[in-house]
Design a protein around this nucleic acid. Structure first.
Lengths: 152, 152
DNA sequence: ACGGATAGTTTCCTTTGTCAACCAATAATA
DNA sequence: TATTATTGGTTGACAAAGGAAACTATCCGT
């Protein structure tokens, strides 16, 4: 039983490695780093998000978040815009190029998955999907983390 | 069907984030970075490994690998030793402290998993394990990667 | 209108990894 | 055997990236 948890842990870690920043030979996300890509995804998902919210979502300080957004902006993938409601806050939104870059990355990985999973039947694939979903949901349902706090 | 692949991709990415270098508030692995921890795991797994092999296993250049091993050595987790067969190569091996540090990290994550998965029954947990296994095996059975080559 | 709070940016600093040059040891060849 | 090429590893200069703290601009409460 405990062994099963250890297995799960090691497997997750292996996946985290394979699909993280170093797995795909450093070229994990086109001209984006893994972190920049995650930020772009968050920005896309909420369609209007502030600098600090982006940072909070990704466990970065606000200065770190500001710089990540700088890089995305320099690449033309997001745009800053002063909020009409509050002159201090920046509304970050994805540009057309940003959306299409993200779509391209998803496309690329999806076809990679298609390829490596082609041996499997649809039932097995469904099963993988729901197992992952269960895992991610369980992790999100926990407010805190194994070590330290989340605040920053 | 394609949507299912996209789901799987996004879920893996979420997991990669949660269990990667930034997920746990930066404190992912005690006094080790994610990368250092992965290197320690590789070193532990093979019990005798060279600097370059470590680098190759983790997609780092040899100088990068050398420095990662420097840091592990400074922390007292691995030891360098000149190979008796070839005076050029370094045999890296984990120290007692290295083994116990790795065990501690595994312990910590395992109990975290225990906690977040406590709602689930043993059958569901078994299912998660085998789904992850299937995924990781499928990825490893592919020699190459979605973009670029592996060589360095 | 003024003092405190809040969102972002910028500057300085540390960490990390690559590239290229280098050293030492082995292998190959004349 | 002497010499040259190759290979494993380390080192130094450099660039990228993110945190802390100082700074700017705006908003809110009195």
């Amino acid at each position: 039983m405990d062994q099963k948890m250890i297995d799960i842990y090691n497997l997750i870690q292996e996946l985290a490695w394979l699909f993280g920043d170093h797995g795909f030979n450093g070229e994990c996300c086109g001209d984006l780093t893994f972190i920049e890509y995650m930020a772009l995804k968050k920005i896309e998902a909420s369609d209007q998000i502030t600098v600090q919210e982006t940072g909070r979502a990704l466990n970065f300080t606000k200065s770190g978040a500001s710089k990540i957004i700088d890089r995305l902006e320099n690449k033309g993938y997001v745009a800053r815009q002063v909020s009409p409601l509050d002159g201090r806050v920046c509304c970050i939104s994805p540009t057309i190029q940003g959306r299409s870059a993200a779509a391209g990355i998803i496309q690329q990985y999806t076809s990679y998955l298609d390829e490596i999973l082609q041996e499997l039947g649809p039932a097995e694939i469904s099963n993988i999907r729901s197992a992952l979903q269960l895992l991610v949901d369980s992790a999100h349902n926990r407010a805190d983390w194994p070590v330290g706090g989340v605040g920053r």
